[in-house]
Amino acid sequence: MTIEVLGISVLWLFLFGYVIVASIDFGAGFFNASTIITKQHHVVNAVIQRYLSPVWEITNVFLVFFFVGMIGFFPKTAYYFGTVLLIPISISIILLALRGSYYAFGTYGTKGHKGYTLMYGVTGALIPASLSTALIISEGGFVKKATNGTLSLDYAALFTSPFAWSIVVLSLTSVLFISASFLAYYSHVAEDNGALKLFRKYTWIWSFPTLITALGIIIEMKWHNPAHFEGMLNLWWLFLLSAICFFISLWLLKKHSYGWSFIFVVLQFALAFYGYGTSRYPYLLYPYLTIHDSFTNQTMAIALVVVFVLGLLLLIPALYLVFKLFIMNKPYIKKGN
């Protein structure tokens, strides 16, 4: 394995980590708000609050890790993505900022304002959509290079592309699917049957739309980016395994084995995510950037890898502590302290 590949694998891992924890978080916010409208808020609120409170900041750090690492390992991406993504990413930042701070205001400050909850839900649905533009434009076709080398984003093409919209839809359905599956498990541990029933239902509702949009995107890829489509065909078995995990997770859900069901959901996404990532090798941005020509120098790469390993040695025990105290702690989940 070359160090470029190691670098991108680590970053991909962070992005995957972010996708999972952020999905749970965004989805939880969305359910928390939407149940206000459907008058089932009292059922889910306790479970959601207890999970969200200690972890919201950690979720954010995953994102920061990803893009700081990206700039570290592949400094040219700062130039390409930085130049064209000013508006979409600024929108994401603003939404993330409102969401994070108003969540803190609502939780640590003054309790129980419905406005906070609604804002938290709405931003939870909008952020995945705006963040996914980074992924969409990386598939090529939307970034224009003028003759003098200036880069710009073709907004008209972006907004009228069915491919782009399918990815937006996928980001939303996956968020709700992952989140519902996790919260079903979490309410099961909390022995909160009302919430469990509701989240089990939501998991079912969002499961097939996720699978169908994902398949749709693979098919659209054939026209949008034939090279990437070829790459995906070569890795057909990974995507097949992912689909199998999908069905296993639903079967486990039926069997009331919620923990395992969630694990298979994660596995399903992991396989698809790695299949997607590997099949686009070596491109970071079609057709301008590959991981080879944008890679930083060897010295920096080695330094970053060393720091990364040392950092993990520090963080894993700390994360284990969080896990033990809050996420996997039965008395806490049940009572909230």
């Binding site: 700039i71 400094p75 920096m300 970053l304 950092g311 963080l315 700390a318």
Partner: peptide, 28 residues
């Protein structure tokens, strides 16, 4: 960032770890 990233990515990256560390223990 394209240029500086090649030289000072290290402290930027370490900063993230420092935050992570702080955030986790503050939460606890």
């Amino acid at each position: 960032m394209e240029m500086a990233g090649q030289v000072v990515a290290l402290p930027l990256f370490m900063e993230t770890f420092a935050f992570f560390f702080e955030a986790i223990f503050l939460g606890i």
